[in-house]
Computed example of a mutant assay.
Amino acid sequence: MTSCASDTYSPREVNSRLQELGFREHLAQTIYGTVAFFVRRQNDDEAGSLLLHGVASDATTWTPMLQCAAELGVDLGNLVLVDLPCFGKSENRLDTMWIPEVGDMLISEMTTLGFLRVRLIGHSMGGFLALDMAARFHEHATSVHVAAGSYFAILNTIKRPIRNIFRNPGTALLWNSYWLLCLMGRTGTMMVRTAAAVLGPRVVIAPFVAKPTKLRRQIAEVMLSQLNPRGVVLTARNGPAYDAVTTWGSIRVPLVAVFGQKDRMVTRWDAEELSQVNPSARIAWVDDAGHMLIVERPAAVLRALGL
């Protein structure tokens, strides 16, 4: 793969107009209500990639990486993006986000769309979901590729918010602060946006990126506009009872996990834990990248994920 402008830090803005990238919108009626899928078919094959976004995101978060892939001449095949329930254009009438139920819904809709073999690609919370789906849907999942998505430290913090400060202090302090803001709902969102108006959006999102002053301002603004306290709270409810060791250790399809060298939320400890529970996992690192590595270094992530 050749080098190009895409290899610079934060090379592309987030594009909210997915139709410009060849996607058509598919509104599925699910147990959650209407869930928005975005489909780009390159061929009539039954294989497709499902891209799962993280919290404070929606399907459009993948667009810098998709634009870099096009610039680099990379054919990603059939693609499906989704706004997960409660995020973006999607509803969540159940007021729950149980990971197995979300996975069931996603696989059902992928089958409806004609994709019986699914390559799972996830970022952050979406990586958590992708790993769970890869463990449970052996007949459908062909491989799983996650960026900042091995969530051991975050899960430990959710289960033991005080005790985990001594094991993973950076993750615990950052997650607990984020969690408290989300518990405050609209008040927390107003506090964050007021801080952004006074200090600037890049200062507010600085803990989640490697080079806040070099991140495109538009990306920082998009991240803040997509703050979703309810979605974070519902997703975090999976944490106390979730057995990551057993579940992710049972994955038998090819597994690639990519981490940002400067990620303060999902760290080297998470990579080591994943290697222990699933020794077949391939671990890769991206320089000059934090937790939002898919918008910071999209071309490098594309390579590291093996896409």
Rank of each mutant, 00 (worst) to 15 (best):
Tyr9Ser: 02
Gly22Asn: 05
Glu25Asn: 06
Thr34His: 11
Arg40Met: 04
Gln42Trp: 00
Asn43Lys: 08
Asn43Asp: 15
Asp44Pro: 02
Glu46Cys: 04
Ala47Tyr: 02
Ala47Ser: 09
Leu51Gly: 08
Leu52Trp: 14
His53Val: 13
Gly54Ile: 00
Gly54Asn: 01
Val55Phe: 15
Ala56Asp: 12
Ser57Tyr: 05
Thr61Ser: 15
Pro64Lys: 01
Met65Thr: 15
Gln67Ser: 08
Cys68Met: 04
Ala69Phe: 02
Gly73Ile: 11
Asn78Val: 08
Asn78Arg: 01
Leu81Phe: 14
Cys86Val: 11
Arg93Leu: 15
Trp98Glu: 11
Gly103Glu: 06
Glu109Lys: 09
Thr111Val: 12
Phe115Arg: 10
Arg117Val: 02
Arg119Val: 03
Leu120Phe: 07
Leu120Arg: 04
His123Cys: 00
His123Asp: 01
Met125His: 05
Gly126Asp: 05
Leu129Val: 10
Ala130Leu: 12
Ala130Ile: 08
Ala134Pro: 14
Glu139Ser: 14
Ala141Lys: 04
His145Trp: 09
Phe152Thr: 08
Asn156Gln: 12
Thr157Asp: 10
Ile162Leu: 14
Arg167His: 11
Arg167Ala: 09
Arg167Leu: 14
Asn168Gln: 13
Pro169Phe: 09
Ala172Gln: 07
Leu173His: 13
Tyr178Asp: 12
Leu181Tyr: 05
Cys182Pro: 04
Leu183Ala: 04
Thr189Glu: 12
Ala196Tyr: 08
Ile205Phe: 02
Phe208Gly: 08
Pro212Tyr: 12
Lys214Pro: 01
Ile219Ala: 08
Glu221Lys: 07
Leu227Asp: 01
Pro229Asn: 02
Val232Asp: 05
Val233His: 03
Asn238Lys: 07
Gly239Tyr: 07
Ala244Phe: 04
Thr247Arg: 14
Thr247Gly: 00
Trp248Asn: 09
Gly249Asn: 14
Ala257Glu: 00
Val258Trp: 01
Phe259Thr: 08
Lys262Gly: 05
Lys262Phe: 10
Glu273His: 14
Leu274His: 07
Ser275Pro: 03
Val277Gly: 06
Ser280Met: 09
Ile283Trp: 06
Asp287Ala: 14
Asp288Ser: 11
Gly290Thr: 04
Met292His: 09
Leu293Met: 14
Glu296Phe: 09
Pro298Asn: 02
Val301Gln: 07
Val301Cys: 08
Arg303Val: 00
Gly306His: 01
